[in-house]
Design a protein around this nucleic acid. Structure first.
Length: 650
RNA sequence: GCGCCUGUAGCUCAGGGGAUAGAGCACUGGCCUCCGGAGCCAGGAGCGCAGGUUCGAUUCCUGCCAGGCGCACCA
């Protein structure tokens, strides 16, 4: 694509490219470049990177794999990236690439020197806008660790996509008109509960929500009150609706506060009440009726409803009643209907827009906007190429309905660009459930689901506070010279690192069984381990004599012809950062980047133990200082992508 | 009943058609005259079961077993 101007960037892609070319030239074979296998060999004798491609092709080419490997080896040698110094072939048919680490280091140093904190970024997303919706906590109670997983995943995803050049708009949807808020209003208004002065409002609501739901079961008349409140909220312009708005506002404040503590920021708050009052659905309804894609049923189970027919789609064929009702026989819209209108707005195809206002400045210095009943017109929001909804796996069916409905309603492109970022939920281990006072009894279950309705769950700020406390003890023990405030500040950053890493290190299909013991760990494969690696590197660099530091420049530092194994490993890992970042962003898989970053830190830890820096010979010391500078930059960039604070001391 | 997801070391998880399946925790034994021991090195132990496809399966397909979650004119 770019001729043969080699750069270590996407080292693997370049080798795939070369293999592809050779395949074309020698065998007139065309394979998808991503399908050309490359792997890290188990033994150093087999090189640094190798391909079993000949084995794969032996069948189709009807030749012994070893012969194919040898022929390809010959062709490959005619034009090699500078950091490949040798190609060997081993039985039964592997092509092995051996790096020239001095040349690789040169190329890598150049890139870091030029790009600095942008090292590793890509530009594949240039000119494309993505709307990412995450957090979306019902504004009726304190946030818990399940919400934390959602926010950490969503925020990391946003950071990764931004670093691929995408224009990312992060939205946090606030359902301020739903049953959840109504239940709190029932408690405050009808049961006349009051929040004690010394209790944070979100915590008070956590308990109130549980109480109200318990009372519903005992007293059906109270459940009637919920319906009444919902009607009043929808109608607006009354005392109850006002109270609901107040509740939602206060709770959202708490939610934003904890998320900001976690380093999670947003661009826009979208309020369901605005969607409601602006008539998003009614507007969409008219459009869809005009286009004839909605069906009015006159018979069958859905008689009297407007539906979207999903029965002929493969996903829904076997369902008992596959069609989705959007407008009930009483004329009201279902939740899915509103969701469709909202999704249409995100893509800029609704033909209607919100009004906007500044919500305020976030701690990172960016402005948070909000939809508002009496705001201003603005054109910058929505209009996405791609929409990613970060919602747990349990919503899969509904998200499928949403996407397929768009498809059936004639918005094929938008349907194809509607992505459900689905992740498994967080549950509680038996030990943690017990600690929270959940009745464990004799049923011996291993895991306990969290439940807002039943008040079962670990609150996000309890989690953070416990983590901070633990980290404070550690920091205070190590740094008696620092003030308690400094201890607390550092501990906070460590806690954020620990929690964020914990929340994204599992892949999305993996159910997190939350256990305090494990989650509070700061050893091994954890966030603080990454931060510790950074602090150690920074510590060495801080001890470099100024006159030495002056002469170390990544761009012209002399790189020894012979490098030690830990040096080579470190160079290789660092050079892989752009590849991993791009892959994690493309596959929407934050855990891949977490894993990479852990490997990078571990590789450095090994280097740290094995290779002296400040006590080495002058020329070697200078090179190793440069290596550490590059490491600090690379790890720092990776940490930034993960939203984990990089610390000079800890 | 139908659909989706998951079964890998004692525990929590990576990996994924190819050369000896990797981490962390826990356990055992080592490592500070040397840049911070939140660390490093070493050790034991594992792909749910049965078929199939393939030169090659832990990976792909089918069935079974076990667990989780979904399948509204609720939000």
């Amino acid at each position: 694509m770019e001729g043969h101007t080699y750069h270590f960037y996407n080292l693997e892609n370049q080798l795939q490219e070369r293999l592809w070319e050779v395949l074309k030239a020698e065998y007139a074979l065309f394979l998808a470049k991503e399908e050309i296998p490359l792997e890290t060999p188990p033994q150093p004798e087999f090189g640094d990177l190798s391909s079993p491609l000949p084995l794969k092709l032996a069948g189709t080419l009807r030749r012994p794999p070893l012969k194919i490997a040898e022929k390809m080896q010959g062709a490959l040698q005619e034009d090699l990236p500078p950091f490949i110094e040798d190609i060997t072939v081993t039985a039964p048919g592997y092509i092995n690439f051996h790096f020239n680490y001095t040349s690789l280091a040169r190329s890598f140093f150049d890139a870091v020197a030029v790009e600095e904190d942008r090292y590793g970024e890509g530009k594949g997303g240039k000119g494309k806008k993505i709307v990412i919706e995450h957090t979306n906590i019902n504004p009726n109670k304190a946030a818990h660790i399940g919400h934390l997983r959602n926010a950490c995943l969503g925020d990391t995803l946003a950071r990764m996509k931004r670093k691929q050049g995408y224009d990312v708009e992060v939205q946090n949807y606030i359902d301020d008109t739903g049953a959840a808020v109504a239940d709190i209003v029932v408690g405050l208004y009808h049961l006349e509960r009051e929040c004690p002065r010394d209790v944070p409002f979100d915590r008070f609501c956590w308990d109130l929500y549980t109480e109200v739901n318990r009372l519903y079961e005992e007293d059906p008349a109270l459940k009637e009150k919920e319906r009444e409140v919902l009607h009043q909220i929808e109608a607006g312009d009354n005392e109850v609706a006002q109270l609901a708005k107040e509740v939602a506002n206060k709770i959202v404040k708490h939610h934003l506060d904890i998320m900001w503590h976690m380093g999670v920021y947003y661009n826009l708050l979208t309020w369901e009440s605005d969607i409601l009052h602006l008539g998003f659905w009614e507007h969409a309804f008219e459009r869809l009726k005009e286009e004839g894609s909605l069906v009015y049923e006159t018979e069958g189970p859905n008689a009297g409803c407007w539906v979207v027919k999903l029965g002929d789609l493969e996903e829904f064929r076997d369902l008992e009643n596959p069609d989705k009702v959007l407008v009930r026989s009483n004329g009201t819209a279902t939740y899915t209907a509103k969701d469709i209108a909202y999704q249409m707005w995100k893509f800029g195809i609704l033909g209607k827009d919100f009004l906007y206002d500044r919500h305020g400045l976030q701690p990172d210095g960016t402005v948070l906007w909000t939809t508002a009943p009496y705001g201003n017109k603005m054109t910058r929001f929505g209009q996405a190429h791609e929409v990613i909804n970060v919602i747990d796996l349990r919503q899969k069916y509904l998200q499928d309905v949403l996407r397929l409905s768009l498809h059936k309603l004639g918005f094929e492109k938008e349907a194809a660009h509607s992505i459900h970022f689905a992740y498994e939920v967080v549950s509680l281990s038996a030990a943690t459930a017990q600690e929270l006072g959940v009745e464990v009894e004799g049923d011996k279950k291993e895991i306990y689901a969290m439940s807002g309705r039943h008040g079962i769950g670990v609150k996000a700020d309890d989690m953070l506070e416990r983590m901070v406390k633990k980290a404070t003890l550690e920091v205070a023990a190590r740094h008696p010279e620092m003030t308690p405030e400094e201890h607390r500040k550092l501990a906070h950053d460590i806690a954020v690192g620990a929690i964020r890493y914990y929340m994204i290190k599992y892949n999305m299909n993996s159910l997190i069984v939350f256990d305090f013991n494990e989650a509070l760990s700061m050893q091994g494969n954890t966030g603080p381990y990454l931060q510790y690696a950074y602090a150690r590197a920074a510590n060495i660099l801080g001890r470099v004599e100024p006159e030495v530091a002056q002469v170390v420049d990544l761009r012209d530092i002399l790189i020894p012809a012979e490098l030690t194994p830990p040096e080579r490993e470190l160079i290789r890992r660092m050079a892989e950062y752009p590849t991993f970042l791009a892959r994690a962003a493309r596959l929407l898989q934050p855990s891949l980047l977490a894993e990479y970053t852990y490997d990078l830190a571990a590789t450095f830890m090994n280097f740290y133990e094995e290779v002296p820096v400040l006590t080495a010979q002058p020329h070697q010391m200078r090179f190793r200082i440069a290596l550490l500078q590059a490491f600090r930059q690379t790890l720092g960039n990776a940490l930034h992508t993960l939203g984990i604070p990089a610390l000079l001391r800890m």
